[in-house]
């Protein structure tokens, strides 16, 4: 919250492959970028959904994994000194009277920029909400999908659902301050690190917490405050007290706040022109999977092309009096200097 007001040429929303390559194309035109992503690392879907899976349609690579592609792009854009802000979601994009934009993230950080590039892919990765009727009313009061303030959990009857590292790490961190701790998982097999699983089992053996094999049933409580819930196990339905519930079912893509920025949408995608990839709001561009236009193909390579053309248009907005000379990285000493080629 106490970060300074950031001023930059371009804010790129989304640090997937297309957002990353946009930094390269913008950088060749001397434009500085800040990138914001909801994940804790670059790569977007490539990092979250298929880091180890092969991609076969990146020009010049007969096969490359999502992680390799991300690593290569990070190396390629290194000379341009882009600043990354992870674990943040952009809530607001406001046009300023002076031209330019004010972009605000969910932690209240303000970025002032001349151009906004939405490269948000399928939207933002958000925690999966269990399909329990009425769970919405408890959210942010007694049902949480992440732990922001540990004090919220002090002296509470905590139930954590899941079998991965998030679930087990929070079981171990919150157990000492909880009134009671219960871990619910659908099977007696955990994806989490074996060391965490062993520690959890020791706590169970010592009677300091409970492990129940089953799945979420119903939630009960009033005014958003949980009091009990049911757990469906193989042969019975248990009712247990709960005042704080933390379900960890991984992430899913949601369009999220993009829908509220006043950009024209079509089937939840941002409409753009195919000359500049500009949205209905001049100065806001959309590239990659999040945009749509006649003939659109959701391919990484299309996003790269869109980023190159977008950058030319962004440059014209930011430096209207400068003549843009089209150059090749192979032969231009000027571009090579920017890339740090010796």
């Amino acid at each position: 919250m106490n970060e300074t007001h950031i001023t930059t040429d371009v804010v790129v929303i989304g640090a997937g492959p297309v957002g990353l390559f946009a930094v390269f194309e913008l950088g060749l035109l001397d434009l500085k970028c800040h990138l914001i992503d909801i994940l804790d690392r670059p790569g977007g879907q490539c990092a979250e959904l298929y880091p180890e899976k092969p991609i076969y349609d990146i020009p010049g690579f007969s096969v490359i994994s999502g992680q390799e592609l991300t690593d290569n792009l990070m190396k390629q854009i290194e000379p341009f000194g882009a600043v990354f802000h992870y674990n943040r979601m952009i809530n607001n994009v406001k046009k300023l009277d002076s031209g330019g934009f004010k972009v605000i993230d969910d932690e209240g950080q303000v970025y002032e920029c001349k151009v906004v590039v939405v490269a948000a892919g399928g939207g933002s990765f958000q925690p999966k909400r269990p399909p329990v009727p009425g769970i919405e009313v408890f959210e942010d009061k007694s049902v949480f999908y992440s732990v922001r303030r540990m004090e919220e959990f002090k002296d509470q009857d905590i139930v954590i659902v899941g079998g991965g590292d998030s679930a087990l790490d929070w079981v171990l961190s919150l157990q000492p301050l909880a009134r009671s701790m219960t871990l619910v998982h659908r099977r007696d097999n955990f994806r989490a690190a074996p060391d965490s699983v062993n520690k959890m089992k020791e706590l169970v053996a010592a009677g300091k917490m409970k492990l129940i094999l089953g799945q979420i049933g119903e939630l009960n409580g009033e005014n958003g405050m949980l009091s009990s819930m049911t757990i469906k196990s193989a042969d019975e339905v248990l009712s247990i007290p709960v005042t704080r519930l933390l379900p960890f079912f991984g992430l899913t893509m949601k369009l999220g706040p993009v829908a509220d920025w006043g950009l024209d949408l079509e089937n939840n995608l941002i409409t753009v022109d195919t000359e500049k990839f500009e949205t209905s709001v001049p100065g806001v561009f959309a590239i990659g999977d999040i945009n749509t236009y006649p003939g659109k193909l959701k391919l990484i390579l299309s996003g790269f092309h869109e980023g190159a053309l977008m950058s030319q248009a962004a440059k014209r907005i930011i430096s209207p009096d400068e003549r843009i000379i089209f150059q090749y990285t192979t032969s231009s000493t000027k571009l090579q200097k920017k890339l740090g080629v010796k």
Partner: peptide, 11 residues
Amino acid sequence: EEDMLDFAFEV
């Protein structure tokens, strides 16, 4: 696949 089913509901 069994690991991924942990992320599904009503398994």
